[in-house]
Design a binder for these strands. Sequence first.
DNA 1: TCTGGGGTCCTAGGACCC
DNA 2: TCTGGGGTCCTAGGACCC
Length: 419
Amino acid sequence: MSSPFAIADCNNFYASCERLFRPELKNVPLIVLSNNDGCVVARSQEVKDLGIKMGVPLFKVQDEIKQHGIQVFSSNYTLYGDISARVMQTLEQFTQLEIYSIDEAFLDLSGMSALNDYGQKIRATVLQHVGVPVCVGIAPTKTLAKLANYASKKFKATRGVVDLRDPERQRRLLGITPVAEIWGVGRKHTQSLQRRGINTALDLAQMDRHQIRRFYSVVLERTVCELNGESCIGLEESPAPRQQIVCSRSFGEKLTRYADLRETVCEFAARATEKLRTHNQLALVAQVFIRTSPFDKAGPSYDNAATGKLTSPSSDTRTILELVTRLFDMIWRDGYRYAKAGVMLGEFCSPQHVQLNLFESRVGCAQQDNLMQAVDSINQNGKGKIWFGGQRPQKDWFMKQANLSPAYTTRWGSIPKVK
DNA sequence: TCTGGGGTCCTAGGACCC
DNA sequence: TCTGGGGTCCTAGGACCC
């Protein structure tokens, strides 16, 4: 059996952070808002129990807020980042860690025993050192670990830890879990799966993987494998370098004047460039976008973006600002009420995107592991095509890695679209 | 009146070359 | 002028995550 993973996930993270310094708010319903206080991005358990959904605009829940005395906070990302670092430092003392998001981390539990007790120990330690409650899910794959974590939060009797290594237990839990709860199954896939009569996670796990590949993608296929206990997504101990840095905002008040919007875009560019330097990276391309609100039915709508390349990779504010303002001027149109704008910097290093097409099947590959699988498929079929988005050096690198001769890049027919 | 921000990966298909 | 295979490069956009 493959070595088990755990995922430790903080409960209602932003809400728990706010409570750390306001202990009197324990058991008081509490929400945290996005920038500009536009919508709800975090909810305490009491608020979740009231049925208030993640991401709803504030104005839609004003009545509930009054009625139930919900405490409302603007978000404080500096604080959350700080608390997150402390949680991660505490988890690091246990075992190899992959920090997955601000409030969750995967842990490598290979060689450990008494995993339920171990999970309880993780919980108790984080609570004691940082004061934030976490729940722990344990399973042979990351996707099942996420499912175990879901169960540990949903069912109080688990006391915040679920060990899902037993296949029979996996089956039972899969059978009572809606397919939408599975990591990697979003809104669109849920709708589509339900139309096929796939309602529970178990239904999905029992689907034929080739069908999944045909109707959906390699990504969902991987999810199905993981639900069946076959580990496809490994622990990534060192974080991969960023591929893009984005700075964007919706405006509380709409902008209509050239000078105002231009200044805002320049601020974004400067901030993005700062981030670039913090990460020790150089950007080669920049993109600027501006748009009116899709909810604003009154005025005319406008949505445009422009992308441009620097002559050489750079993290110099003036150089990037010069490009960004030029791009902005290309897309600026007078007469609209702009609601959002942003700047994206990218292509820091050789692009990692590689796509492989095979006769009668397609495999999209972004990771080296899958690439090797793809190479095997090519070798078996004796034909295929590897398509490289991005630049030359990436291709040369891969050909060398995979020990492939250039002959393998011969294209084989076109691939019919499967409906 | 008021609708987040920051990411990743995969796929289709157009433009262009011979 | 049209059709067609074979190939490269790039971009838009859709799906997902927190």
